[in-house]
Every structure is written in structure tokens, then in C-alpha cells.
Design a protein around this nucleic acid. Structure first.
Length: 280
DNA sequence: CAGTGGCCCTGTCTGC
DNA sequence: TGCAGACAGGGCCACT
């Protein structure tokens, strides 16, 4: 939805000027703000693409403006006379004088960069995205390869889900929700999962992502473009994530919160019992 | 090399 | 009331 919106608003338009308001927002662009701006200004945006949590705008130069929205990042398409957001980091003005593109990010976990486009596995992606796996909604996603990769890991199943080189687009929320649906504990050793169990898990991941996407779709019409898509989904559909001490929707047992990778994991202690020999 | 843990950042909330 | 600390979280990097 974010990608669709961006494509609709910026594809075919030529960038006039680039304003970097906060250097940290382009910290992954090593050559710095001057180089960043000069590679974008005067170029025409050809499309908007996405993989996992990355989003990019291919330019007519063979490079692309690559964005990672982190947790709090937004790409907004707004009239030039709209007041600057408090956390406005980068602004792109277009030669046609129409709406401008703004990167807004409170916590600056995200950022922009300009990157060379390369071909990986039959798909053209920015170099910085080349190591990111396809997401499960990608038509070219290879289910069998994913399950094989999952089973060959020597770690806990949630760690594997969060590893973007194995599968992309799954964050802490989607992981907990898919694990709850599959009745798997986050520390379940990946090598102990059967192929059918792996496919079942993948199916639940897909369902969670599809439902989240459907519910987040509405926010975009207001030109509020946000990869999190949390608006409706966050409140209505979560079964485990953030529901500490609330009853499990299946069995009524209070949901439990555990520290996990400097974050949290939410499980139903009854539906998702901790394995005896769990892997973190 | 694969796996793991710490840290980045800032606003909000909780508890003393 | 005010302040300290926990928490949110994807990814990068150093370390084992």
C-alpha cells in the first residue's frame, strides 16, 4: 500500500532539489549530504519498489533512492506549503512544483541513501537491499527453500523469523502473532520443526501479513504513508503481542511477556509451552 | 562462518 | 511533583 501510494504520487516526476535537514537520516549514505543531493537532483523517479522493510525509488540514472523506515519513519507526499513536521529529516521538491516528498522520522532509526541498482536472483534491487530475502507475499517467494533454510538453522524459531536474510518483512509483532497462531514457542529449535510444521508457520505468517496490510490500507488515502500499517490492525486483531495478562483468545490463560533480544515476546503459556531444550 | 548480544534514538509511561 | 528507568524496535557491528 505504501509502495502503491508512492508510485502513484511520484513516478514520472523529476526531482528539482533535495534538502537534508538532519545528517543522521542519511548516515548510511557514506559520501555525505552533498553527494546524496547531487545524485537525486535533476533525476526522474521511475517507480516505487519494496522488499521487506526497505522501499526504493529507481531513478533514470540507474541508481535508486533507498529508504528504510525503521520503526518511526514515514514518507509523506504533501503540498509545499504544508507546515514542516517536527521531525522532518529530508525533503525532495519536484520540478513540476507539485506535492513534495518528505521523510519524517522521530527516532532516526530509519534513513535514506542513494544506491546502485543491481540484479540479484532475477530481480533488480539496490545494492544495500541485495542481502534481504524476498518477503512471503512476493510471488517469487520459494516456500520449500524457506522451510529448508529454516530447518538448517541452529537457533530459535523466532530469531529465524526475524532474520531478514532468511525471510523479510517480519517484525516483532508479526512474528509473535504467527507463532501464537501456530502454537509455537519462540525458543523452539528450528531444527526440530518438521517440513509440514514449517509450511504451516509460513502460512500463518502470510495470513498475518495479509490481514495487517488490508487493515492498514485505509490510512494511505489521507497521504499518511506508513509501512507499519498499525492504524487499525494494532488495536483490533492482535492475539498475543502487547497483551500481557490479558486472556488468550483460545484458552483464556493470561498472555505472558518475556524479555527477548532487547525486546519482548508475548506467548500463551498454555498454547505455546516453552520447549524443554529451547534455543533462544 | 553462523550465531549472539549490545547499541543506536527519542517520546511516553510507570513507579518511587 | 519530579526524576530515573523501562520500553518500543530493525539493523548493524563486534565478538565468540
Amino acid at each position: 500500500m505504501v509502495r502503491d501510494g508512492l508510485a502513484r504520487w511520484v513516478a514520472g516526476r523529476t526531482v528539482d532539489s533535495v534538502e537534508v535537514r538532519h545528517p543522521r537520516a542519511i548516515r548510511r549514505h557514506a559520501p555525505g549530504p552533498g553527494d546524496f543531493a547531487s545524485r537525486i537532483a535533476g533525476r526522474t523517479v521511475e517507480a516505487a519498489e519494496r522488499r521487506g522493510k526497505y522501499l526504493w525509488l529507481p531513478l533514470d540514472s540507474g541508481e535508486a533512492v533507498t529508504a528504510h523506515l525503521g520503526m518511526s519513519g514515514q514518507l509523506l507526499v504533501e503540498p509545499g506549503d504544508a507546515p514542516d513536521e517536527k521531525h522532518l529529516r529530508v525533503r525532495l521538491r519536484f520540478a513540476d512544483g507539485g506535492r513534495e516528498l518528505r521523510f519524517v522520522d522521530q527516532r532516526t532509526f530509519g534513513g535514506l541513501a542513494v544506491d546502485e541498482l543491481v540484479e540479484v536472483d532475477g530481480t533488480v534491487v539496490p545494492r544495500s537491499v541485495a542481502h534481504i530475502a524476498r518477503d512471503p507475499l512476493d510471488p517469487a517467494f520459494d516456500d520449500a527453500a524457506f522451510v529448508a533454510g529454516l530447518r538448517s538453522r541452529r537457533t530459535g524459531v523466532k530469531r529465524a523469523l526475524l532474520d531478514q536474510t532468511l525471510v523479510s518483512g517480519i517484525g516483532n509483532i508479526y512474528a509473535d502473532e504467527a507463532l501464537w497462531r501456530t502454537k509455537l514457542h519462540y525458543a523452539r529449535p528450528t531444527e526440530s520443526l518438521t517440513r509440514p510444521a514449517g509450511l504451516l508457520l509460513l502460512g500463518q505468517v502470510r495470513d498475518v501479513m495479509t490481514e495487517a496490510l488490508a487493515q492498514g490500507g485505509t490510512s494511505f488515502d489521507a497521504l499518511y504513508i506508513d509501512v507499519n500499517g498499525q492504524s487499525g490492525y494494532f488495536d483490533r486483531s492482535l492475539n498475543a503481542y502487547g497483551r500481557t495478562d490479558e486472556p488468550c483468545g483460545r484458552c483464556g490463560t493470561p498472555i505472558r511477556r518475556d524479555p527477548f533480544m532487547n525486546r519482548s515476546s508475548f506467548t500463551c503459556p498454555r498454547c505455546q509451552p516453552r520447549p524443554r531444550r529451547g534455543r533462544w
